[in-house]
Simulated assay, not measured.
Amino acid sequence: MTRILPGVIAMAAIVVASNILVQHLFGQWLTWGAFTYPFAFLVTDVMNRVYGPSAARKVVFAGFVTGVICSFIGTQIIGEFGPLVTLRIAIASGLAFLTAQLLDVAIFDRLRGGKWWRAPVASTIIGGTVDTAIFFTIAFSASLAFLEIGNDVGWANEVLPMLGSGPNAPLWISLAVADWLVKMAIAFVALVPFRLIVTKLSPNPA
């Protein structure tokens, strides 16, 4: 456990920071949390490359527990429009994180024998896409309103041009697309720290 403690701490820090920063808008389509959360995939991939999939899964579960605690705290804090974290947000966040991160671990492990960049790129792109799809659909889709009858997400289902200039779609689709684009950009930016950290921690980073 000691060897993966830095990974556990890093994952917990990213989850806590993202839960705080998601409360603050960045432009019209994003929150500041969109720029910190994708680095959870970097932590998972580094742990997977250096210590293997079992260690990576332990780090993922540590992040999941941290997220559950953050969600519980958020439900107890009442903001201008009600609790900072609703039941739908809590379910969406937990399910998206756990599913996407474990998928990331599995894909990375399957591709670990190829070029050094292939496993982190493929696992992060697929994991990040699944994460975005699960979170925004569960949290905001009108078709899942039965999950929390008292939570009005009508604002997220207002039909507007996608990202301000595309075809008409519910607002939450624009939010999801913007979030996904950030995840994809960071997936490639994170290759630099991935290579540097793995090289430092492992004598055989390939």
Rank of each mutant, 00 (worst) to 15 (best):
G82H: 02
G82F: 04
P83I: 00
L84E: 02
L84H: 03
L84K: 00
V85L: 00
V85I: 07
T86A: 01
T86K: 00
L87F: 15
A90S: 12
A90H: 06
A92I: 07
A92R: 08
S93C: 12
S93R: 11
G94H: 05
G94F: 05
L95H: 07
F97K: 06
L98A: 10
L98H: 05
L98G: 07
T99R: 03
T99S: 10
Q101E: 09
Q101Y: 06
Q101M: 11
Q101P: 03
D104S: 09
F108K: 01
D109I: 07
R110I: 06
R112L: 01
R112W: 08
G113V: 09
G114F: 13
G114V: 10
K115T: 13
K115G: 13
K115R: 15
W116K: 09
W117S: 01
W117A: 04
W117E: 00
W117N: 00
A119L: 00
P120T: 00
V121C: 02
A122F: 14
A122G: 10
A122I: 13
S123R: 02
T124Y: 06
I125K: 06
I126N: 08
G127E: 01
T129C: 13
V130M: 12
D131W: 08
T132P: 00
T132V: 07
T132H: 02
A133P: 01
A133G: 09
A133S: 13
I134V: 12
T137W: 02
T137D: 05
A139N: 03
L144F: 11
A145S: 15
L147E: 08
E148G: 11
E148I: 10
N151W: 10
D152N: 07
V153T: 14
V153W: 10
V153Q: 12
V153H: 13
G154N: 08
G154F: 01
W155Y: 15
A156C: 05
N157G: 02
L160I: 15
P161L: 09
P161Y: 08
M162K: 11
M162L: 15
L163T: 10
L163M: 09
L163P: 05
G164Q: 10
G166L: 09
P167N: 11
N168C: 11
N168R: 14
